[in-house]
């Protein structure tokens, strides 16, 4: 057992005792988790729980009140700006909206980071961009503008951009939100296949339970400002924890109540 533990490579991201609040509102209270290398790790939880905020903390866009986020052993929030930018070249993020640059066509969007950072000649960049677009099935859209693509295609184009610099880690922010079943299936397939083919460390933030459980190697479930459960998809499905069962089963009432706390109903109606 000890040998197995020693043989495990060090996690790529480690979050220790993280606390974060916005004004008076506490978002995270003492969260600790780790993202293993080369695996798909999912972070699930109800809407508004702060999952996107967690990604922004991991990427150094927000600073925690307490605790540390280590990326490959480096404390993200103790880096100087130049060091942080060097770290960010090793990570990438697929935003919920796609966040494609609306004044550029799809080709230039994917080529953008390569032109900024790689120093490669345009001919090589062109080949890389076409290969990335081919990987997400959008080579034919290279000359189209983002507003000419459907929502699902925009997210695939953004995925091609996210992997253009061949990062070690890709963070997916609600990749399945608002997608039709076909687009969702395509995105599930792409995340799984690209993660395996490029040996990417993937962090998927989502509340689409079935899709996430189908691709994740390990899952953290968040609620009430902390991690309430973790394990492999099979372990989570087998759990009898009431809050977890409500979330995975999509039940409208349970430990998370259907009704927002309010005055007594009868008293408020009749007086």
């Amino acid at each position: 057992m000890d040998h197995q533990v020693l043989a495990e490579p060090k996690p790529l991201v480690e979050i220790h005792n993280l606390g974060f609040s916005r004004g008076e509102h506490v978002i995270f209270d003492d969260i600790s988790l780790s993202i293993p290398r080369g695996k798909v790790t999912a972070i699930m939880g109800p809407s508004g729980i702060g999952k996107t905020t967690l990604l922004k903390l991991m990427g150094g866009q927000l600073t925690p009140d307490i605790g540390h986020v280590l990326f490959d052993g480096v404390d993200v929030h103790k880096c100087r700006r130049e060091e942080l930018f060097t770290l960010r070249k090793r990570m990438s993020m697929l935003f919920q909206s796609g966040a494609l640059f609306t004044d550029m066509n799809v080709f230039d969007n994917v080529a953008f980071a390569l032109r900024e950072h790689s120093g490669l000649p345009e001919e090589i960049i062109k080949r890389i961009v076409l290969m990335k677009l081919e990987a997400v099935g959008l080579r034919g859209t290279a000359n189209m503008m983002p507003n000419e693509l459907s929502g699902g295609m925009q997210r695939r184009a953004a995925l091609a951009r996210a992997i253009a610099l061949e990062p070690e880690m890709v963070m997916y922010d609600e990749p399945f939100a608002g997608q039709d079943p076909i687009s969702m299936g395509v995105l599930v397939k792409l995340i799984r296949e690209l993660s395996a083919a490029l040996q990417l460390t993937s962090v998927v933030i989502s509340h689409d339970v079935q899709e996430v459980l189908s691709i994740a190697d390990y899952v953290y479930v968040m609620a009430d400002k902390r991690v309430i459960a973790q394990g492999t998809p099979a372990e989570l499905k087998a759990s009898d924890m009431a809050q977890l069962k409500q979330f995975i089963g999509g039940e409208p009432d349970g430990p998370v109540p259907f009704h927002f706390p309010a005055e007594d109903y009868q008293k408020e109606l009749i007086g």
Partner: peptide, 14 residues
């Protein structure tokens, strides 16, 4: 609002 500024940050572009 469409997260284009955030995506620049994450691409290590100021």
């Amino acid at each position: 609002s469409t997260e284009q500024l955030s995506s620049l940050e994450m691409m290590a572009i100021d």
